[in-house]
Design a protein around this nucleic acid. Structure first.
Lengths: 219, 219
DNA sequence: GTGACCATGTGAAATGGTTCACAAGAAGTA
DNA sequence: TACTTCTTGTGAACCATTTCACATGGTCAC
């Protein structure tokens, strides 16, 4: 059995699949499943049972031979692996198209990501109320982020200003950034950065159609 | 040199990186770069030069030894590989939070993805105007999609109804679907499906923070 | 034209990720 | 208890992707 804390490099794909398992386990829970086998889980994700077992084995042995995994238990194990067994305070910067959609995006809150601060530089937006949150002036970014103890930020600003804001939020102590701007950002090595690029998947689709690439499971 | 039409399986990662190269080439074009080396391109994407050259080599030899790649030319090569050297007519289904943000999302149009039809089942939304497009009743999905010759659809509806709509759009002749609903959809093998799961990247961030996973380049 | 330099394109090697195959553990049955 | 059945957990084998390393071919200065 692998120790939960074994310092082994876990692949990005494994983590992404844990997210999928988590979502499916939540569903199984609602459907009142007691247990689930790697076979069943694999079927739902269009993966192989071995893949599922291997992914989980990096973190421990959570199953029972002959029986499978206890749905509740596995779900909560994955929660703690992914770090979503707690509440995250998140600031959202840029209350434009994407930004305002994200404020209302329920999946985030479901998994413990709570947007508690909104920032913008547009005077018409500052002071306005989105889902109970008042939009702050981006000038107050530093103090408000520090005060609220926020370490995670969603960036939904135009590409032209994204880097400046990144520099600022990093100074304010943020260590995780989810970036929606179509630009490559620079962050210090201590800061985690992920990019959400919605065109990418459309481009993959058009590639697949044009080249008659065999349809495959999606990421 | 690999023939552009060699039937070799191209990896998903390679295609995603082409998207990145494309974006950066557009930028370089604006910055009036004539040529770019694999080294420079790699630096901007935080990849290795060999990776860049290998990716491109699957599709042909586009560079000049001693000089690098012509920015304009490479950009247009990638455009045709990705199938974005043409206009795609896209229908967007579900004009809620996410949906209405996507209508205004400029990156799509920039790359040739034109949302020309909106559908919803909410009487209050049907008939309303979003960026010049009138929201249609989802009841007319089949006829309107066929009539407009749409083959690509963005799905931004609640998870509970997503599968029904997928079945309908497939019947209407759609062969590519970008799904934002947090659910695993079933499509026939002839239909391309990609999922956009915005929670996944946040979960990756929280995993990285909690496990002190060395920050790495983002996808 | 010649020489120095540079960066591509690509086999081969190395690395990393997925699948196989099976020993071993647990549950249920008689 | 003994037997059957089921499914996990995991080394080993396999396959895919990335990186290395270098021959090749082109540019540019003089």
């Amino acid at each position: 059995m692998a120790s939960p804390l074994a310092r082994k490099r876990i692949s990005e794909s494994t983590i992404h699949r844990l997210s999928l398992y988590y979502r499916t386990l939540s569903l199984l829970e609602k459907e009142n499943y007691e247990t689930v086998s790697s076979k069943e889980l694999a079927k739902r994700e269009k993966l192989t049972p071995a893949q599922v077992r291997k992914d989980l084995s990096f973190f421990g042995s959570f199953g029972t031979r002959g029986l499978g995994y206890n749905v509740n238990e596995l779900k909560s194990k994955i929660e703690s692996i992914l770090g979503i067994n707690r509440d995250w305070k998140v600031a959202l910067i840029g209350v434009g198209n994407i930004g305002s959609a994200l404020v209302s995006y329920k999946e985030f809150a479901k998994q413990g990501f709570h947007i508690i601060k909104l920032f913008d530089n547009d005077q018409r937006k500052i002071g306005s109320n989105h889902k109970g949150i008042i939009v702050s002036d981006i000038k107050n970014l530093d103090s408000e982020i520090k005060e609220a103890g926020i370490t995670m930020v969603i960036l939904a600003v135009p590409a032209t200003v994204a880097q400046y804001i990144v520099d600022d939020v990093v100074k304010a102590g943020v260590t995780a950034i989810l970036n929606f701007a179509p630009i490559n950002l620079r962050v210090p090595p201590t800061v985690h950065l992920r990019n959400e690029n919605m065109s990418m998947e459309l481009e993959y689709l058009s590639f697949a159609m044009v080249n008659n690439h065999a349809p495959k499971k999606s990421k």
